[in-house]
Write a protein that binds this DNA or RNA. Structure first.
Length: 289
DNA sequence: ACCGGAGCCTGTTAGC
DNA sequence: TGCTAACAGGCTCCGG
C-alpha cells in the first residue's frame, strides 16, 4: 500500500503517464478539454519530435494554426477532433501513451511533452506522449483521415440490424475484426474483450457464423462496455489518467480484460488469456461460446 | 479478402 | 542486487 501510494505520487509529480486510450478514454479527454479550450486562440506552437506532426511539417503547421480560435472539441473513433476557425481542423490520435491537458504556461512541463500550443490566456495545450506513437494533423478536409473509419458504435445509425449485416459480409475472426477501425471505430483491446464477455461470445468465432441473436447480444455488449467506460471516465490501467491527472474507474469493473486466472463473475469459470491477431485476449472458456 | 509479422517507441517487469 | 530481454499495444506497411 505504502509502495503503491509512493509510486502514484511519483507519477503525479513527474507527469509520467502512459495511456491506452480507446473510445471512452478519448471521449473523456474531449469532454474535459472543451471548457478550457473553446473560445481560446492559438498564439504559438512548439514541437521537438517531428514525427508527432503527421501533416503538415512544423513551419507550415505553426503558420496555419497561429491566430486560429477553437470552436469545439469532439471525437470520431479514437481521434480527437478540434474545430478551429475556418478552414482548419486539427486531429490528435493519442495512440498508446498520449495525454492532452490544458495547463497554465508557468507550470513545469514533463520531458515527454513533445508538442505544445500556446493560448491567448497564458494557458498551454500540451501533448505528452512517452512512447511517441501519437500523431497530430492539421487538415482543411478532415474526411481524408476520418472518412476511412467505420461507423460510430454509439450512434443512432449503428443498429443491431446494421451490425448483423456488417458481420455477415465478413469472414474474419471476431476479435481482430472488432479492433479493425475501418470496420467499427473506437473499440480497442480492452473494450473488445469486455464486449465479447458481456455477449457470451467467444473471441475466436468467425464473424459470419454468428446467429442474429448472438449478433444482437454482441451489439448490446459493445454499447454496454463503451457506455460503462464513458460513465466511469476511462480505464486507468498502467498509467492512464484524465486530462486533470485523476484516474478513471473502469479498471475496477472489468470482467474479462486483465483477469486471466481469476474466476468469471458470471459462471465461475477461469478467465483464459490467449493471443489473437498478436493481441492479448481474455475470455471465459466456460460461458463464452 | 484475409492473415501474420515487422516496425514504430520507452517504461516496466520477468527472468537469469 | 544488477543486468538484459521480453512485453505492452494502435496502427501502417508489406508479403503470402
Amino acid at each position: 500500500m505504502g509502495k503503491c501510494l509512493l509510486k502514484f505520487q511519483n507519477l503525479q509529480l513527474l507527469e509520467y503517464f502512459a495511456v491506452m486510450p480507446e473510445l471512452p478514454e478519448v471521449e473523456t479527454t474531449a469532454r474535459a478539454l472543451s471548457q478550457p479550450l473553446v473560445g481560446r486562440t492559438v498564439t504559438g506552437m512548439w514541437n521537438d519530435w517531428p514525427k508527432h506532426l503527421a501533416t503538415p511539417i512544423l513551419p507550415e503547421f505553426r503558420h496555419r494554426i497561429v491566430g486560429k480560435r477553437f470552436h469545439s472539441v469532439g471525437r470520431r473513433g479514437k481521434y480527437l477532433v478540434f474545430h478551429l476557425d475556418e478552414p482548419e481542423t486539427m486531429l490528435v490520435h493519442l495512440k498508446m501513451s498520449g495525454h492532452l491537458a490544458v495547463v497554465p504556461g508557468v507550470e513545469p512541463a514533463s520531458k515527454h511533452v513533445h508538442t505544445l500550443f500556446e493560448l491567448d490566456n497564458g494557458d498551454e495545450l500540451r501533448f505528452r506522449d512517452t512512447r511517441k506513437f501519437g500523431r497530430v494533423y492539421l487538415l482543411q478536409d478532415p474526411q481524408t483521415v476520418l472518412g476511412k473509419l467505420g461507423p460510430e458504435p454509439l450512434s443512432d445509425t449503428f443498429t443491431p440490424d446494421v451490425f448483423y449485416t456488417m458481420l455477415r459480409r465478413r469472414k474474419r475472426i471476431l476479435k481482430p475484426l472488432l479492433l479493425d477501425q475501418t470496420f467499427l471505430a473506437g473499440v480497442g483491446n480492452i473494450y473488445a474483450d469486455e464486449a465479447l464477455h458481456f455477449a457470451a461470445v467467444r473471441p475466436t468465432r468467425i464473424s459470419n457464423t454468428l446467429s442474429s441473436s448472438e449478433s444482437e447480444a454482441l451489439h448490446a455488449g459493445i454499447q454496454k462496455a463503451l457506455n460503462l467506460g464513458i460513465s466511469r471516465e476511462g480505464a486507468s490501467i498502467d498509467n492512464y489518467r484524465k486530462p486533470d491527472g485523476s484516474m478513471g474507474s473502469m479498471q475496477n469493473v472489468l470482467v474479462a480484460y486483465g483477469r486471466a486466472g481469476e474466476p468469471c463473475n458470471r459462471c465461475g469459470g477461469i478467465i483464459e488469456k490467449i493471443v489473437l491477431g498478436s493481441r492479448s485476449t481474455h475470455f471465459c472458456p466456460q460461458c463464452q461460446v
